[in-house]
């Protein structure tokens, strides 16, 4: 059975992809401003909580967790997983077009493979129906009569 997703559900999947990758990028940028933290300077972690990039990163990661769990409430884990992997592609594209980093052929191939993976899964059903639905299907087909 094919489950068509509503526009709001596509928006949740887009939020899963964007919040994780942009959140990680912001945390990384914030921590690079704070500098290295070791066991003797743990107070720097509290100092980091005042950094605007760290705060924005934490807010986005809370958003990621909320949207990820919302997606799992109406889709299979194996359907949502490639969407989270698409975050790697967004980070790579951000580094190429925003930070002007060089992307090797390996990385472009990796991006292509993950895009294909998302395409494979998005073309299929979002949710596996279990026993009660299967029984209904059997009854509908007349096999149970």
């Amino acid at each position: 059975m094919k489950h068509a997703l509503k526009p709001s559900q596509y928006a949740i999947l887009a939020a899963v992809m964007l919040t994780a990758s942009v959140g990680d990028t912001l945390l990384s940028h914030g921590m690079s401003q704070i500098g290295p933290v070791d066991l003797h300077h743990l107070h720097l972690l509290f100092h980091a909580l005042g950094n605007i990039y760290i705060i924005a990163g934490i807010v986005l990661l809370i958003g990621f967790f909320s949207s990820y769990m919302t997606a799992l409430s109406w889709a299979d884990l194996t359907f949502v997983m490639p969407a989270t992997a698409f975050g790697y592609v967004i980070v790579a594209l951000l580094s190429r077009f925003w930070l002007h980093e060089h992307l090797s052929v390996y990385r472009w191939t990796g991006i292509l493979l993950i895009v294909c993976a998302v395409g494979f899964v998005a073309g299929g059903p979002s949710r596996t129906e279990h026993e009660p639905q299967r029984e209904l299907d059997v009854m509908d087909s007349g096999a149970g009569r």
Partner: peptide
């Protein structure tokens, strides 16, 4: 684990997607 514990229908399309993601992640890390 999704196939065994959650009884999800992990068909050939989803296994292929998992394989592509794994190879893709390894290539992105290069």
């Amino acid at each position: 684990a999704a196939k065994v514990f959650l009884r999800e229908n992990v068909d050939r399309r989803r296994w292929l997607a998992v394989l592509f993601v794994c190879i893709g992640v390894v290539l992105l890390a290069k």
